[in-house]
Design a protein around this nucleic acid. Structure first.
Lengths: 302, 302
DNA sequence: TATCATATAAAACAATCGTTGCATCGATCT
DNA sequence: AGATCGATGCAACGATTGTTTTATATGATA
């Protein structure tokens, strides 16, 4: 499990960061993993660590030498020491904050309340009841010919994420979106073998409901991600997955809904792991050939 | 140097204590050392541990079998897990029980692992270090004349959410997005009083980095939501907020990034609560007059 | 005291560890 | 194009790991 462990007053960490740019790609990949999983370094063997980081074992040794250390053992010893002597940081560090300005403290408290609330809401989704709904929804989506994805206004985030991830796996999804009031056009060729995944929360966008209703009339299966048992979508959906949207701020939160969407993607990919892997590799190659990604700030062209 | 720490309500710990009296002297000596140095168990090899405990290596194995475990590796794994999950408490508890089964059960387990991992990651964002970064970022965004929001590909979700919420508050944000390669056009009228909020995770979209670099050259402030201390964005951003992106599935997760974005929105709205409330009411009235929302499935028109 | 059962130490074992040398690959420069 | 150099994957190495087996020591019982 990934855990960015942000503050340890750590010389080695700084050292790795400062020399990161000079490293070769493989060394960078290893270094990045070290930075983002400092705990694992102390807890697992180098070989296992390198497996998880996606590099060769020797790369870890080479990284150590690159950093001027005698070997990997130095890296591990350092991280183990960091764990041993971490004063129970949380309470201590929270204390030092109380001396700062009022506004800042109020802000930090709001942040913390929001984040811990979100964590709790997502943890709640892992209860058996929602797990069952997730499985059932994934099942229906898996058997669909095409999946039409609809999320308007704030829910566009979730719809986009689902569609984007699924395009990496294939062309099963069609995102119902577009300018000039063409949102629903995708449904023209939709039929009974298809499924509509609709995301909508209170207040429910009228257009989403209309399109969901239309889809129902055309015989599509309907899977909904929504926020309540009494959401209008529950009535017309075959499967409804409920997410809480309450936040300690002015706005509703879509974070739990996004989590649900990501879990659905994970479940769908998991139905055929080898096919998923293959599709992802194909997508990788495609994007690579298009020069879509970079790992450093590029020199600007012209 | 030995210190009893870790107030873990630990099943293995209880077990060792409850059977302590039945143990032979050597087993007791080993067990006592385990109880008093739980951290060391996860950090050093069994042979070194037994050296420090003053017993033979085989005694550790025998202790494990005495406790009904298959071997010493179980003991180490358990203590490593305790260290991994020391921070988050509630996510740790549910993590324990796992029962194997069929495909559906496997799916449910994947779901649960993903959700609990996400919950833990978001809970970690509530540590003081990230709270500081959030406050600082919100501060810079608050003082900006305009906020340009940039998130491409998978990060579009987050960029959209931030922009959408902020449009409810006013017209301070400009979403850098669009078809026909017009993504960057919004920056034409950007200047030194403005700030760019850029969201990008590994693999980093080349275009995002280029635009961020351009913005930097035009004198804009830069706030980044990204995934690593060594992300290329960290170098050019004034503020970088780090989110973990690891998931127990094939794909990266954007849920923590979305949570960060929502917290930023919350902090910004919180700077002037009355103004925020007023703006939201105005937005409500506007959307009401446009008949954007509904609370029941409408009859389809025409 | 002789015998036996158990607890402990010592040694042997395969597996895995971190490391190193070598071959290969791809980029850069004559 | 050919040469050169660093980066990288691979395979083998000795060292060390956790475990198992064997031998020794211990202590109780008859």
């Amino acid at each position: 499990m990934g855990a960015i462990q942000m503050l340890q007053n750590d010389a080695m960490r700084e050292h790795i960061i400062s020399r990161f740019d000079e490293m070769s790609p493989q060394l960078q990949q290893a270094a990045r993993y070290l930075l983002e999983h400092p705990r694992e370094v102390a807890l697992v063997s180098m070989r296992e660590l390198s497996r998880n980081a996606g590099v060769q074992p020797s790369t870890m040794t080479r990284l150590a030498k690159f950093l001027g250390l005698s070997g990997y053992e130095d890296i591990r010893a350092h991280h183990a020491e960091a764990i041993r002597f971490r004063t129970d940081g949380f309470a201590a560090r929270a204390m030092q904050h109380t001396s700062e300005g009022e506004q800042d403290v109020a802000g930090a408290q709001l942040s913390r309340r929001m984040l811990q609330g979100l964590a709790a809401q997502i943890a709640q989704l892992s209860e058996p009841a929602s797990l069952d709904r997730l499985s059932a929804a994934a099942e229906q989506l898996a058997h669909a010919r095409k999946i039409f994805v609809l999320g308007l206004r704030s829910c566009h985030s979730v719809a986009w994420q689902f569609h984007y991830v699924m395009t990496l796996l294939g062309d099963k999804t069609i995102h119902l979106d577009g300018p000039a009031d063409t949102v629903g056009d995708g449904l023209i060729r939709a039929g009974a073998e298809d499924v509509l995944l609709v995301i909508s929360i209170n207040p429910y966008a009228l257009h989403s409901l209309e399109l969901a209703q239309l889809a129902r009339e055309k015989g599509l299966g309907i899977v909904a991600i929504t926020d309540s048992e009494v959401s209008p979508l529950v009535g017309i959906a075959d499967q409804a997955i409920l997410c809480s949207t309450e936040s300690q701020s002015f706005f509703h939160t879509l974070t739990p809904a996004l989590a649900i969407s990501e879990v659905l993607c994970g479940l769908l990919a998991n139905k055929d792991r080898t096919a998923a892997l293959e599709a992802l590799q194909r997508a990788d190659r495609h994007l690579l050939s298009l020069n879509t990604y970079a790992s450093a700030i590029p020199r600007r062209r012209i």
